[in-house]
Design a protein around this nucleic acid. Structure first.
Lengths: 138, 138
DNA sequence: TTTATATTTCTATAATATTGGAACTATGGA
DNA sequence: TCCATAGTTCCAATATTATAGAAATATAAA
């Protein structure tokens, strides 16, 4: 992911209504939520909601799937994943940047086909060396 | 972290120049970089750079430490950490939301005082159940 | 004390984003 | 067909943000 692209994603999330929408969809999971339900839960007028949904869709953070009269929106987890990877990539030149972060030894299992995606996420916004070839620039 | 606060952080990062500054500081590590060096590397006029540094400082993503005539800026890793935690918190109601993410079993070591902060970071922007009491709302 | 350097503040301008009412389109049910 | 509902697009007012020159401040070196 390039800086410009990452900045677009971050800017899309950098608005209270859009962040609320995205978080709602992240918590909802892959099944997503109908647009009308989002608007109801967040109390947004339809045109405003539509504007923000379009913005989030345009940058690829959510996706809408039409179902008869409704549109079911869901989070694009892969995009969020890439964004977080960008933010934390090559932190501190791959050195342990936090005093306590001595045990940076679980990287190998990241995206290991054997166990899929590991569960640690926000653990350390740091310490992800380059040598592991984990999408250094895709 | 509240939604409004997280949105402010994301908005701060949602600008190409500021994101470049922040990434530069993340890669630089805890020692940070002098403001002048940042401006040189990114080719930003001094007032523009100052404007963006002030913005990032205000929201707490970076910190500036004066050293004689210079100011040494460094990333606030803890803030980035909290932001990523907010983004990924309670994803998919704590269920595995990605087909492959069956092995969500390494959460317990998150922030374990024994090994400090674990190395996995961008691994899965998902699957962080609530039950672990890992800052659900601080 | 003068000068150079690092950085900020002031300022005006330009560009961009947000908002929601009104009107429109699409779909399904009566 | 007619109506209700879900959602979008249009539009204009408003608000916010970014930009960089010029001037100001602070520090150190000559």
């Amino acid at each position: 992911m390039e800086t410009l692209n990452a900045a677009e994603l971050l800017a899309a999330l950098g608005h209270e209504s859009r962040l609320s929408i995205f978080r709602l969809l992240v918590e909802a999971g892959p099944d997503g939520v109908f647009a009308s339900a989002i608007g109801e839960q967040l109390g947004l007028p339809a045109p405003t909601l539509s504007f923000h949904l379009a913005h989030l869709s345009r940058v690829g953070l959510i996706r809408g799937q039409k179902e008869s009269r409704f549109i079911r929106y869901s989070a694009e987890f892969a995009t969020m994943d890439e964004l977080i990877a960008f933010l934390t990539h090559n932190c501190c030149q791959g050195q342990a940047c936090l005093p306590k972060a001595a045990a940076c030894d679980t990287i190998a299992k990241r995206r290991n086909p054997a166990n899929g995606v590991s569960a640690d996420s926000a653990a350390a916004a740091c310490c992800k060396p380059d040598e592991q070839a984990d999408q250094p620039e895709q």
